[in-house]
Design a binder for these strands. Structure first.
Length: 906
RNA sequence: GGGCGAUUAGCUCAGUUGGUCAGAGCGUACGGUUCACAUCCGUAAGGUCACUGGUUCGAGCCCAGUAUCGCCCA
């Protein structure tokens, strides 16, 4: 069909193609248009659900592309391929976004109240949701939209309740008072993973605490101890001073008491090995309610742990003038007051690490709270078992080390969040504090300990960490805890593709929860993508303003170009910089393919009807070029298959780019052109030639479809199909590698090499590209027939006319005239001469220099080859195949060197 | 403090089990109105594969160490 426009315009094609896929119902593995083989196992990917309130960025586009290409590949191979899409309610992240919007309206979480806030959230997410889904369609995701899930839908809610109830029953969920990471900005606790350790330059204050005279109970005027602290405001919560037990400086102080300023609390001086003698003065204050280490120390020594901060990080319950002050204001005033008293001994600049909130960047406060935790140790052990036994593989493999380390040092997971947007924890408390956990959405009938009626019970106000529902994703989306048909058929899933940055947040949790709740690892392969960075290598982020909107890119260069660019030259787990050069290259490639197809479609011999059914080329009428391209196409199938099996998607695109551009377009099409245009050949030959091109092109379109689905689908429609083909490429069968014709590949590639060498010689001698020059060639006898068959094409490709074939090297020599350009090609056994239109001294010199350069290069290789063959160790120890190869190479080089020397001498 | 990654052509990066693998794209230079494509075609130049040592007949690839940059964990 020649009605394809001259340049590929993705905009004119993509939307319509996606609509056709939707209309044909081919995304669902059990859709009306599915061609899945029921005998084959299904292939399942559950999409990492993007945050519902966000918008897609390049990272999403990259992941969608990888997931989609695996899905499309599996689908074409006949598997029932399920790409299950979804959205995440994103609890804290969504609240953060909404809170910012509310703030602009002069409202806040508090001003709205829980109910209205949640209504607002639902409305907001409903406004962003269709945008996000549309974005994914633009990228080309062949996801089963009919199975779209949401972490806040009833299915997810049910699985959350059931999962938690099971964990509780199994002793893996417990409620306790513990020191948690509190974000004063978000007003919630967060998990250890959400803490961002941030280096900061702070101050280390050395503060004098006066000792108490045990006899009088008054301050001992003689004795004091100087403690070092970076947080003077927590002095108000001190319940001890600690020194190292072996520290001679303080040995005699241990057991005495010191008076805490402002609160006038007398606290013991204790000895504990946790103290670092080299830090500060070697004596530290202990604030068990506001520091992780101090909390542990306090527990060991039975110290009280008064909380002195409110949820908003103002001072509270100290009974001092500082109550009600912000923590930093309190710090300033306390330092000032201590200075006035003369008790600030020293201030030092101090480099330290401060924990900040991943979401709001607020400095976190360790706070004592009663919360729910998941006991992770037994779960982690099973997760490790799954990867160690290779029931689940992690790619790239090096992440297994990270995985091992984290899971073997894992800490219990705090799942309580003092937020509103999310799944409410299904735990109820009776007035005396008994706990009842139930999966029943209506709540418990009564306290399961004391049987107090439901009316007296109160549900936990907290919600779950958003990652809790995410952790159930691979099975909650398929119907778990119910034994649904989907769950039976598609679980466990096949591949979990995601960014390596959430391996702990998400992958580990899915693994742990999946193994415990479903008894099986939720996926057999974890494919970790690298991160997309900006051209300078910086992480893309909204605050940096370097985020690229994929829709803009798609509008400009097309979804296929974006997808190709994201895959090409990438490797699993490896970050990539993303710039316009890659995109342009990908766009050009799509255009190249478009035009190649345009040529093939337009080159259909008149003897073949436009709507004809696909035929295999008649092998009797195939020329070497056609046999060559068919063989190369088959080789490409094999290489792509191998790369796909290795999840080496960058290799897939590399191989296809090379095959399509440098083999099919540059030579397959160019060589065929001559034959197709040769009116002296019979129709049978034209037809076979054309069918060969169609066959090869069809193979490439199929192979490329997973990466570039739109353009391949569009182009596939422009070439004849087989009777067995479905109407759409997306559900057509993946090609099978057939036996290659190695001999024809060798011969044609030698002649292609000859053309290149002839062009090189002409260019070096500054011969105008368009000049037709008399050219003589000698090829070894076994290449003779192929040479003759390709002669017209070779003439054209090398601008060699007339083109004579000499039967012996001597015959070629005999025709040589002064000024002739000489070419030694192939394995040194092909020679050619080009006769310029006029003898040009300058050109001759250039020509001679070229030959000399070639000779010295060949001599160098030859010397190396001979050295190798002379090496007894090599001859003795290298495998015979390698030795044979080296011998053949040596012979070739010797031949080449000899001929080049002859030419230069003659 | 522990771990991981990167270091290959001017730039951005491929290189699966060690045996012509020294590659691609972009860029550069020169030349092209070849009837699919200037989003193109042809030709070319450019690299001691970070450094040092080791294993091996043979190392970009394996081992040890060093340097620089980056990331993760504590």
């Amino acid at each position: 069909m020649t009605d394809l426009p001259k340049a590929y315009t993705p905009r004119d094609v993509e939307g319509a193609i996606y609509e056709r896929w939707l209309a044909a119902d081919v995304f669902a593995p059990d859709g009306a248009g599915s061609t899945a083989d029921p005998e084959l196992p299904p292939f399942t990917i559950t999409q990492p659900p993007p945050n519902v309130t966000g918008s897609l960025h390049l990272g999403h586009a990259q992941r969608t592309t990888v997931e989609d290409l695996m899905t499309r590949h599996a689908r074409m191979r006949g598997h029932a391929a399920l790409f299950l899409p979804g959205l995440d309610h994103a609890s804290i992240a969504a609240q953060f976004v909404l809170d910012a919007i509310l703030a602009k309206e002069g409202e806040s979480r508090q001003s709205l109240g829980r109910e209205r806030y949640l209504e607002r959230m639902v409305a907001f997410s409903e406004s962003t949701r269709p945008v996000m889904l549309a974005q994914q369609r633009r990228v080309g995701a062949s996801a089963d939209w009919g199975r779209l899930r949401y972490t806040m839908d009833e299915g997810s809610a049910k699985s959350v309740r059931v999962a938690f109830a099971r964990l509780y029953r199994d002793g893996l969920a417990y409620r306790t008072e513990a020191l948690v990471n509190w974000c004063p900005g978000c007003q919630t606790s967060i998990s250890d993973l959400e803490v961002v350790p941030t280096p900061e330059t702070g101050t280390l204050w050395l503060v004098r605490y006066h000792l108490v005279d045990e006899a009088s109970g008054e301050l001992d005027p003689e004795r004091s101890v100087v403690v070092a602290t970076t947080r003077p405001e927590t002095i108000l919560g001190d319940t001890a001073v600690a020194v190292h037990p072996d520290d001679e400086r303080y040995r005699e102080l241990v057991g005495r008491r010191a008076r805490i300023p402002f609160v006038d609390r007398d606290v013991p001086i204790i000895a504990d090995e946790v103290v670092d003698r080299a830090f500060g003065t070697g004596a530290v204050k202990i604030t068990p309610a506001h520091d992780q280490d101090d909390h542990e120390t306090g527990k060991r020594h039975g110290l009280p742990a008064p909380t002195i901060l409110a949820d908003d990080a103002t001072m509270a319950n100290t009974g001092t003038e500082f109550d009600g002050l912000d923590r930093y204001e309190a710090r300033r005033r306390i330092v000032a007051a201590l200075t006035d008293r003369g008790d600030v001994v020293e201030e030092r600049v101090h480099e330290m690490i401060v924990g900040r909130c991943q979401r709001s960047d607020d400095v976190l406060e360790p706070r004592l709270k009663t919360q729910w935790f998941i006991r992770t140790e037994p779960l982690a052990a099973r997760a490790l078992g799954a990867t160690r036994s290779r029931r689940t593989a992690i790619l790239p493999e090096r992440f297994e080390k990270t995985w091992e380390h984290w899971l073997t040092n894992i800490r219990d997971w705090n799942v309580s969040r003092q937020l509103w947007w999310g799944h409410r924890i299904p735990a109820w408390y009776c007035p005396v504090g008994h706990v009842t956990v139930t999966a029943d959405p209506a709540g418990p009938m009564a306290c399961e300990v004391c049987a107090r009626p439901a009316g007296e019970l109160q549900q936990d106000p907290d919600i779950f960490d958003t990652w809790f529902s995410s952790g159930l994703w691979p099975f909650s989306t398929l119907g778990w805890p119910d034994e649904t048909p989907d769950y039976a058929r598609y679980y466990p899933t096949s591949v979990m593709e995601t960014g390596y940055d959430i391996i702990f947040f998400w992958v580990a949790r899915m693994m742990m929860l999946g193994l415990h709740l479903t008894g099986t690892a939720p996926f057999h392969t974890v494919y970790l993508s690298g991160l997309i960075r900006d051209p300078e290598g910086k992480k893309m982020s909204k605050t940096k303003g370097n985020v690229v909107d994929p829709l803009g890119v798609i509008d400009e260069t097309g979804a296929d170009a974006l997808r190709f660019a994201l895959i090409h030259g990438s490797a699993a787990g490896q970050d990539q910089r993303f710039g316009t050069a890659k995109l342009e290259n990908a766009r050009n490639f799509a255009n190249k393919l478009w035009n190649a197809t345009r040529f093939v479609a337009g080159a259909r011999p008149a003897s073949i009807a436009a709507d004809t059914e696909r035929r295999l080329p008649d092998t009797r009428h195939l020329g070497p070029a056609e046999r060559w391209i068919l063989s190369r196409a088959s080789a490409t199938v094999a290489t792509v298959d191998a790369a796909m099996a290795d999840y080496a998607f960058g290799e897939v695109t590399r191989v296809l780019y090379d095959a399509i551009w440098n083999e099919f377009c540059d030579w397959g099409v160019e060589l065929a052109k001559v034959r197709l245009a040769d009116g002296s050949l019979p129709d049978d030959v034209h037809e076979a030639t054309w069918w060969a091109l169609v066959e090869a092109l069809d193979t490439y379109l199929r192979l490329l479809h997973p990466v570039m689905p739109f353009v391949t689908e569009a182009l596939w429609a422009a070439i004849p199909h087989r009777a067995s083909d479905p109407g759409l490429l997306i559900v057509a069968r993946w090609p099978a590698a057939v036996e290659r014709d190695i001999e024809i590949e060798r011969q044609v590639s030698a002649l292609i090499g000859l053309v290149g060498d002839l062009r090189n010689a002409r260019t070096t001698a500054k011969i105008p590209a368009g000049d037709w020059l008399e050219t003589r060639v000698h090829v070894p006898p076994d290449l003779g027939a192929t040479f003759e068959a390709l002669r017209p094409a070779l003439e054209r490709m090398a601008r060699a006319r007339p083109l004579h074939r000499e039967l012996t090297p001597e015959a070629l020599d005999a025709t040589r005239a002064p000024g002739d350009l000489t070419v030694v090609a192939g394995a040194g056994d092909i020679e050619a001469t080009i006769r310029p239109a006029a003898i040009d001294e300058g050109a001759s010199a250039l020509e001679r220099a070229r030959l000399e350069r070639e000779l010295s290069e060949a001599e160098g290789w030859l010397a190396a080859a001979r050295e190798r063959l002379a090496n007894e160790s090599f001859m003795g120890k290298a495998p015979p195949a390698v030795v044979d190869g080296a011998r053949a190479r040596e012979a070739e080089l010797a031949d080449q060197v000899e001929r080049l020397r002859d030419r230069l001498a003659g």
